[in-house]
Amino acid sequence: MTTHHHYREAIEMAGRGRGHRMMSFSVDAVGIRESLPPTIHQPTPVFPVMEQKPLPLTGGEEAEYLLALKQDCRGAMRSLPCFIQPAVAQRDVERYSDKYHISEQTDRLKDWVVDWKRFPRELRVHVRKAPGDGALLSCRDSGQQIQKKKKKVREEILLKLETLEKKEEQESSEGEGEMEKKQDEGAEAEEDYDEEEFEEETDYIMSYFENGEDFGGDSDDNMDEAIY
């Protein structure tokens, strides 16, 4: 609001009350004609110049203690369960640290004890589910995913074994030179395929969660290759 605007409003309102006259009093009579600023057609500056210096803040022990209390209080309330974090948007990739964050959040929600006698039932039914469930669900989800992945891996291994068996059979029937070539090609193709699969899923967690048998086997294979 401009000061000028205020002034004009005051005059207009006074005028309206009387009816036909625009101004109920002459500006000269009040003696403010010369101080009337020119009409302005733009908003006042966001940070007007301050003509007077502000009074300094009061200092002292009490003020400082109050300040410390204020900051402590704000910090403390952030860590209480009643500080609700917005749902974190699903990030680009699943991260190793994610599961630790999840456990942090569930811990906070577990502390949140509400006496449901004091709150409406409609909040209760779902909310009680929500804190437990929100966390549980995600856990369960990831658990299911992991299981699925495990299944997949197992299937892949079976498939691989089967193909290898077939190849062996082929080996025995076909000539050695040809077989070598073919086998190489096949192995290469398979390796490519595997890598692609792994890359698509970006699934280092999978290998982490596996009991290590696969890993050991792999490394053995590698060792063999290295030796030969």
Partner: peptide, 13 residues
């Protein structure tokens, strides 16, 4: 909905 419910609980608390 879950967050709204939680928020209401916080406010009432």
């Amino acid at each position: 909905a879950d967050l709204v419910k939680k928020s209401l609980c916080v406010l009432m608390h």
